[in-house]
Amino acid sequence: MKPGPFTYHDPTELADAVALIGAHENARALAGGQSLVPMMNFRYAMPDHLIDLNGVSGLSFIDCGERIRLGAMTRQRDVEFSSDLQHAVPILREALLNVGHRQTRNRGTIGGSICNLDPSAEMPAIMLLHDAELTAQSTRGVRKIPMNKFALGFMTTSLEPDELLTEISFARWGKGHGYGFHEYARRHGDFAICSAGVLIEADSRGEVARIAIVVGGLGATPVRLSAFEAAAKGHRLADELIAEAAAAASRMDALSDAHFSADYRRHLAGVLTRRAMKSAFERIGVAAYV
């Protein structure tokens, strides 16, 4: 057997799951298991207690109301095939199709991906793009955490050891907003080297009413181009704006590792931001020539 020994808990109620994770040392919550179980197979992760959330009721739901609400245990597959979500948040599916493969999305969850917080993972980037709010629960109570305070560092979230992520929610963007998500990975479905996501709302004059840009894979966590976003407001949707966004992305701080240099990541950030901007323009109905 590959994983080390552990005590298995399979609660059916959230209160029990929260009590279990609060009561045990070296306990891990098991969501879809598409990252944690490989880590356990390698014995990089050796929890003494595994608290399986798959049987806990009430953690898997998609609510497309005033705010979009997703249960933490909602399968990536269910998000992929939700026509309500496709209508309300089309960028979500566009990004999700880069998350692993059919077999892993059948099992993998939205909350699991966010909590795993791989630097180039798509779901944390999309949640940062939407200024999502995460709901965490422990025996001490319920806590709301904005996504930019959730992602602390390399695969490190602000969840306390006794907390469980239960829900992700964010405001939807206006009808007819532009969106685009592009990434570069060596093989489709692999973790990306770099990714970029763009949301744009245009006003009646064809100017930027609101814009959000996220880049993943540059550093330990995804980053927003906040300074550019603020400066771009009121600018015309023209090719120059795409070029400026790409330039801003390629000026961000980036980390080097054994595989890819910081320069290469910045280069990709620029290219992918340009492509994502272009997609967003086209979806608003503005032709782009860059």
Binding site: K2, G33, Q34, P38, Q103, R107
Partner: peptide, 27 residues
Amino acid sequence: CEHGVCGACTVLVNGRSLRSCLMFAVQ
């Protein structure tokens, strides 16, 4: 590969394909 990369262990559970090396039998 036994860590969810190769897909050789794909089976269907309740009609859905998944990697049987990334699921515990008890699940």
